[in-house]
Design a protein around this nucleic acid. Structure first.
Lengths: 324, 324
DNA sequence: TTGTAGGCGTTATCAG
DNA sequence: CTGATAACGCCTACAA
């Protein structure tokens, strides 16, 4: 790896000239410019971004904290973050927190030491016992605007409401909701949206609960179907739960969507892999990631963003688990 | 953010002493140690890892290049890489290449500028027109040992063979293979394993082809089922293809596994989400990622690794798309 | 238009 | 046991 000194020597100028050339700052004669350029090419010089970072206290990196990249919601988010970050010249440092505040703090500290220019953190829990370095901008994804931090979410409440509307429109008479964990903000919002819309329609409902993973969902489903025979539609707090219920229903020979309609939430890819394909309230996952990045980059570059809270709209995707 | 100087001043010693204390290099008196420690706590000092990186030409970061984190195979890999890297004190920089050599090169350069200590690249294509910085160790994942680089893969050939064995054992008479793209090494190995085992058993076979995505698989499946009525078992080059075929078969009312058995390859999570659950040749994805990290870290730390090529074993997971 | 020099935060060397 | 100091590679006054 050659350094700016090598280039300077090769080009017969000083490092200052090379630096000016590189950064288009200050004057450099046509002749010098040519020499420098030649030298750069000849030596295959690439400026060392660590040295740059040290000087500028800025690294052109953004830190991304997700609970678990293995959870199907997050890869798409991460991809979006990386795509738009890249466009603006930022690299992304990834961290999995497992939703553990300690690990989150850990990454926050790590990121600071690395001079990351900004942080996107997508924590689904609502705990906020973190000490934040106030001069590194942070945007929060997929969680309510609790801490006053810039936030990007989707309207979970409204999405849930619409799910119920759809089910009713499709003729559902006895609707159940399988809610997600109580620590998860979005699960609570969806729950509330469900309740309110059911109440508005004067309908009785059944509530069950499941964690956001398949095993838990299947267990819940077995219990559920043993107990509730009359239910003809289920709104699940996310797609994983929905798929778990779908599987168990299928196994029990329940006709989907004739006897039982199911609608999930999230719009992750595997919704299309099951049969019948899962109807769902799709979050604009990629857009949320992209939006978060753009917002963060504005913050980093001290532009005034229009808003500090973006609540994107969800859209219902009707597929095979609800009636035509 | 306070620096080592602040700490030194606060503790009434020189930066050298602080540094020695921090790195446990050289002597520092009990008394000084105490003062330094107090100062560190008081100022909440954290050593700046950028400055460290500049000095050491080493960043405690490893770069990870995947084709697309959105592809269900890679999150688990990435997670493994991050988990074990973290244990050894390495952070991970993520890049999506889309299998594009240009983007791969791009990240390689980027990573070098950042002084990453090592790189894990998982490219499924077999192209090798990359210029590599020879003093940054690289380990290659999920691709044949083409370029003489340290590599971690699974035995695709053997896995494919076993898939065929299983199908035959389960009574399959007319077996088809849906092969993956020709540029993808592992797809070719699986294809070859299939062919050889079929030949060994003197069985005729049918070959079709599909890209590794659901849309392509479903199209291929429609064509396939229209043409081939007598096929009673299909070995698909990966799980995505398998799920595509499963969906279309279900839609056509084909009984699975009674009339048609299906086996996939990879062992990704959504294999358990479909119903019937997908039988598959499971790669030890997490282990592969973990192994790659450990190998890389050995390389980084100049330990002599036992081997430069790790070929992990696949294992068949019998689920619902093959007979009992 | 160009070069010199000091500094970003850390570490290692070398006297003391 | 401790403290100056040079160096890592780059950038920006400032002087020329």
């Amino acid at each position: 790896m050659s350094t700016i000194k090598d280039v300077a020597k090769e080009a017969g100028v000083s490092v200052a000239t090379v630096s000016r050339f590189l950064n288009k700052s200050g004057y450099v004669s046509e002749n010098s410019a040519k020499n420098v350029l030649d030298a750069i090419k000849k030596l295959d010089y690439q400026p060392n971004s660590v040295a740059r970072a040290l000087f500028h206290k800025t690294s052109k990196m953004i830190g991304l904290i997700v609970p678990d990249i293995t959870n199907p919601f997050f890869p798409e988010l991460a991809r979006a973050v990386e795509d738009v970050s890249m466009i603006y010249g930022y690299k992304v440092l990834l961290g999995n927190s497992d939703g553990d505040p300690e690990k989150e703090q850990n990454y926050l500290d790590l990121f600071d030491q690395k001079y990351v220019d900004g942080i996107i953190m997508t924590s689904r829990s609502s705990k906020t016992d973190l000490t934040l370095n106030t001069d590194t901008p942070i945007v929060v994804l997929d969680r309510a605007n609790i801490s006053g931090l810039p936030t990007v979410t989707s309207n979970n409440y409204e999405g849930a409401r619409q799910a119920v509307e759809l089910l009713i429109e499709k003729g559902a008479m006895h609707i159940a909701h399988i809610r997600g964990p109580r620590e998860i903000t979005s699960a609570n919002d969806r729950y509330q949206g469900f309740i309110d819309e059911m109440l508005k329609n004067n309908m009785d409902y059944v509530i069950a609960e499941s964690a956001f993973n398949l095993k838990s969902a299947e267990e819940a489903a077995h219990h559920f179907f043993d107990k509730h025979k009359q239910i003809d539609a289920i709104f699940c707090s996310n797609d994983t739960i929905a798929v778990g219920f779908l599987k168990v229903a299928l196994k029990k020979g329940i006709q989907i969507p004739a006897d039982l309609q199911i609608i999930g939430f999230d719009g992750v890819a595997f919704g299309e892999m099951v049969y019948p394909e899962l109807t769902t309230v799709a979050q604009p996952i990629y857009d949320m990631g992209a939006m978060a990045s753009r917002l963060l980059i504005k913050l980093i570059e001290k532009e005034e963003p229009e808003q500090l809270l973006y609540e994107l709209k969800n859209s219902i995707i009707e597929r095979g688990t609800t009636r035509k």
